[in-house]
Design a protein around this nucleic acid. Sequence first.
DNA 1: TTCATTTCTTGCCATTTGCTAAGTGGAGGC
DNA 2: GCCTCCACTTAGCAAATGGCAAGAAATGAA
Lengths: 193, 193
Amino acid sequence: MNKDTLIQFVQQVLPMSPARAEQLVAKFNAVKIDKNGYVLKAGAVCNAYYFIEKGIMRSYTYNLEGDEVTTAFYAEKSFASDLLSFFNRSPSREYIQTITDCETWSITYADMQESFHAMPDFREFGRLKLVNSYGILKERMLSMLQETAEQRYSDLISSSPEIFQHVPLKYIASYLGITDTSLSRIRKEFIRK
Amino acid sequence: MNKDTLIQFVQQVLPMSPARAEQLVAKFNAVKIDKNGYVLKAGAVCNAYYFIEKGIMRSYTYNLEGDEVTTAFYAEKSFASDLLSFFNRSPSREYIQTITDCETWSITYADMQESFHAMPDFREFGRLKLVNSYGILKERMLSMLQETAEQRYSDLISSSPEIFQHVPLKYIASYLGITDTSLSRIRKEFIRK
DNA sequence: TTCATTTCTTGCCATTTGCTAAGTGGAGGC
DNA sequence: GCCTCCACTTAGCAAATGGCAAGAAATGAA
């Protein structure tokens, strides 16, 4: 594992010197999780914020009928966490599960608070990431409102092709808000075109 | 207009003395907007954050077919703004429009930055509101994934009955992700029950 | 008031999606 | 190798929703 990936990521979000970036990520510790492992379980308070150096994760919850609903995919070189649970210190309603073996850099809530307090640019980084996550969610919300399932599928293929190499179709289906049967039909049509 | 409403709201989000709360909201200025007025137009950078003391607003954008899509309703005693545009200083893609005459308290981006810098608890307030907005969006996202249009309609009635008194049905329909025709049918069924 | 415009409802039919169940193919355990 | 489990596809039918158009009801302007 190589912390440089994280350091470079931080610099990309908020330009700064490599030395400064290294200070910012000082409290992040290496954590490996095997495939199908859990980083967070519903009912628990999310106490860590993970930067995924290698691997893919997803978060999911259950609907009233008891079916799994995939709420997000977390690709390589991105952060995985339940922001609501993490920042509000409230029990999470979702599970975060590794889909492949994962190598991550993780920071606890307490350490993050400390870093927020000590380093204004870490604070700024945190706010940028939060606004960024908000933006991603809003984008997805909008796509649910104004696009067909097929368009959403097509968007996901182009934006995150790496997901399709590892993720079972049924996860993608519930992420798109449709059944795996429908997704199968959509794929068939899609390939035909 | 009475700034106490805003002061009480701030104290509710983050408990503090009335005097302290008054300091926090010092930079908010009274702004009145007539019905059907615009607080933000697509293409512009959102430069103000509005607390609605009286009235209702909505934000909307256009889909690829050129139809309006209502992205949010802003009720009394809540904040209206395009957070992405406001914090990223990027052009907004949506319009924020008053649905009734509105009385608001508004703060500019520059003043908010200054307050963030000067007052740690204002910063904390800002973060709480941002996480809160994220939570609302996530909740809505989830409802799109796992509920029927009728359930979403029912939820909106119970959570925001005041909206129905002023807002045309077609706005609500596009907010729910369906056509006004479908909403009309759903209402018919709903009343029958 | 009257007229025009907008909002809302309704009917008809097409399309999309869901539900259930069956069948195929592949991966891994024995 | 064989068997079981899981992922995926496919089919038939039902339900939800959309598109279009007509008409009723409400609203606003003159």
